[in-house]
Design a binder for these strands. Structure first.
Length: 429
DNA sequence: TAAGCGTGGTC
DNA sequence: TGACCAAGCTT
C-alpha cells in the first residue's frame, strides 16, 4: 500500500460522504447517548428496520437517565421484534452505569466507554469518533468489505484476528479532524455502493485506485468462510385457554433471564425428541398458521398427531409441573434463528393445574394419578378436569400468567409467538 | 477461537 | 427459494 493511495482514499471518501450522506434520525445532532443507542440498534440490523424502533425508543427514553430509571420489561417491550434482546438489557445496564458512575453523562473517555455493557470495539470506536470526533477506528462488516476490496486483502473477515488487523489499517486512514465523517463514510459507502453482492464500482468515488477492482476481484472479495447451518428443532407448543376467572385468556410463560430469548414471553412449549419431530422428520407442509385442526394432512389424524400430543402432555408435566390435556392440532409456525430453526407445532389444550416449585408433586399424586400424564386416558382426563375445577383459583408460578390481548401490549414476545397469538385472537373474535 | 444470540430483506 | 447477510458483543 502506498501512502498516496491511502491519502487519496481518505480524501475522496470524505468528500463523497459529505455530499451523499443519508438523512437519518441519529444524525440530527451529536448527542453521544443518541449515537450510542443507534449504534447498538444497528448491530446486525438494517437501517430501515431500525428507524421506527429508534424513533419510539428515543421518544420513550430520551436520556441515559430516563433509560436507567425505566422498568426492564418496558425496555424489552420497546425492543420487541428487533432481535438480539441482550442488546436491550446491556444498553440499559450501560445507561445505569453512566448514571451511577458518570453523573448521567456519557464519558468522553475511550476506556470508560469501552467498559460499558454491550459496548465492544466497534461501538466504542463509533461513539468516540461520531459523537466526539476522536480518531478511533470503527470497524464493522461494511468497513471490512470496503477495505478488503480497496486494498485487495485476502484475510478471512470471519476471523476475529482480521478485524484487529483492519482496525489498525482503518486507524491509519482517518483524516485529521474528520474521524466521525470518515468512519461514517466508510460504512455509508459499504451500505450504498460497495455492497456485498454487486458492488457499484461505476459510481464509486474511489474506484480509480481500488486494488480489488483492478485485480478483477471485486466479486470474490472479501473472503469469508461460511457459517454453520442452523440445526432444526421441532417444538411442541400448548395453546391453553383458561376457564373461570381466566375465561378467554391464554396461558403464557416468561423465559429465563439468560440464554435464548432471555426474559421474553411465549406459549409453553417443549423440545420434541428427534424421532417425534414429524412423519418424516421434516417440517410438515400445507398446514400453515391459522385454524387447521380440521385438516388431515400427511397422514396425520384429524385432531393432530397422537404421538406429539402425548409427548407435549408428558414433557410439560415433567419439565414445568404443568398438567394439561392436549385436545387438537391448531397450527404451525416456523421461526428461524441464526443457529436454530424451530418448527413450532401448536396444540390446543385444556388446563388442568400447575404446581409451584415449592409444592411437592407427591401430595397431588393421588388426585392426578400417574395416568394423567397420558392425555387420551379418559379416566385420567376426568380426574384432571375435576381436580382443575377445585383449583381454579390456585396461584400460578411467577413466570406463568393467563393473559388477554390487553396484557399482550405490556409483555414482550418473540415474533413467532406474537404472530400465533395475534392469529388466535383475530380468529377468535 | 468458536459458538450463542433474532429478525427481515434481498437476489 | 434458499442462501446470504446487516452499523457485533459476550462467553
Amino acid at each position: 500500500m502506498t501512502t498516496e493511495a491511502a491519502s487519496y482514499f481518505s480524501r475522496e471518501l470524505l468528500d463523497w460522504y459529505r455530499g451523499n450522506k443519508r438523512v437519518l434520525p441519529w444524525r440530527m445532532n451529536r448527542d453521544p447517548y443518541r449515537i450510542w443507542v443507534s449504534e447498538v440498534m444497528l448491530q446486525q440490523t438494517r437501517v430501515d428496520t431500525v428507524i421506527p424502533y429508534y424513533e419510539r425508543f428515543m421518544d420513550k427514553f430520551p436520556t441515559a437517565a430516563a433509560l436507567a430509571e425505566a422498568p426492564e420489561p418496558e425496555v424489552l417491550k420497546c425492543w420487541e421484534g428487533l432481535g438480539y434482546y441482550s442488546r436491550a438489557r446491556n444498553l440499559q445496564a450501560g445507561a445505569r452505569e453512566v448514571v451511577e458512575r458518570h453523573g448521567g453523562i456519557v464519558p468522553e473517555d475511550k476506556e470508560a466507554v469501552s467498559a460499558l455493557r454491550g459496548v465492544g470495539p466497534y461501538t466504542a470506536g463509533a461513539i468516540m469518533s461520531i459523537a466526539f470526533n476522536r480518531p478511533e477506528p470503527a470497524v464493522d462488516g461494511n468497513v471490512m468489505r470496503v477495505l478488503s476490496r480497496f486494498f485487495c486483502l485476502e484475510d478471512d473477515i470471519a476471523k476475529p484476528a482480521t478485524r484487529v488487523k483492519i482496525e489498525k489499517l482503518a486507524a491509519s486512514l482517518i483524516p485529521e479532524g474528520a474521524a466521525g465523517d470518515f468512519n461514517q463514510g466508510l460504512m455509508e459507502l459499504g451500505a450504498l455502493v460497495c455492497t456485498p453482492k454487486s458492488p457499484g464500482c461505476l459510481t464509486c468515488p474511489v474506484m480509480m485506485h481500488c486494488e480489488g477492482r483492478m485485480a478483477g476481484k471485486e466479486h470474490v472479495l472479501p473472503i469469508k468462510t461460511k457459517a454453520k447451518p442452523p440445526r432444526p428443532e421441532t417444538r411442541l407448543a400448548a395453546l391453553i385457554v383458561g376457564s373461570g376467572q381466566h375465561a378467554g385468556k391464554v396461558l403464557v410463560r416468561q423465559r429465563p433471564a439468560t440464554g435464548l430469548l432471555a426474559s421474553m414471553w411465549e406459549l409453553p412449549h417443549v423440545l420434541a425428541p428427534q424421532a417425534a419431530s414429524g412423519d418424516d422428520g421434516l417440517p410438515v407442509r400445507g398446514r400453515k398458521r391459522g385454524r387447521g385442526s380440521q385438516q388431515s394432512v400427511n397422514g396425520k389424524e384429524r385432531g393432530g398427531d397422537p404421538v406429539q400430543m402425548d409427548l407435549l402432555c408428558r414433557l410439560l408435566a415433567q419439565e414445568e409441573r404443568l398438567l394439561v390435556r392436549p385436545v387438537s392440532w391448531w397450527g404451525e409456525a416456523e421461526h428461524i434463528f441464526s443457529h436454530i430453526v424451530w418448527d413450532v407445532q401448536v396444540y390446543r389444550a385444556e388446563f388442568g393445574f400447575m404446581l409451584r416449585a415449592d409444592e411437592s408433586p407427591l401430595e397431588h399424586a393421588a388426585a392426578a394419578g400417574d395416568a394423567v400424564l397420558t392425555w387420551h386416558d379418559t379416566l385420567a382426563a376426568e380426574s384432571l378436569v375435576s381436580y382443575a375445577a377445585d383449583n381454579a383459583d390456585k396461584e400460578l408460578p411467577a413466570n406463568y400468567r393467563f393473559i388477554g390481548p390487553e396484557e399482550m401490549r405490556e409483555l414482550a414476545f418473540p415474533n413467532v409467538f406474537l404472530r400465533l397469538l395475534r392469529d388466535y385472537w383475530t380468529l377468535t373474535d
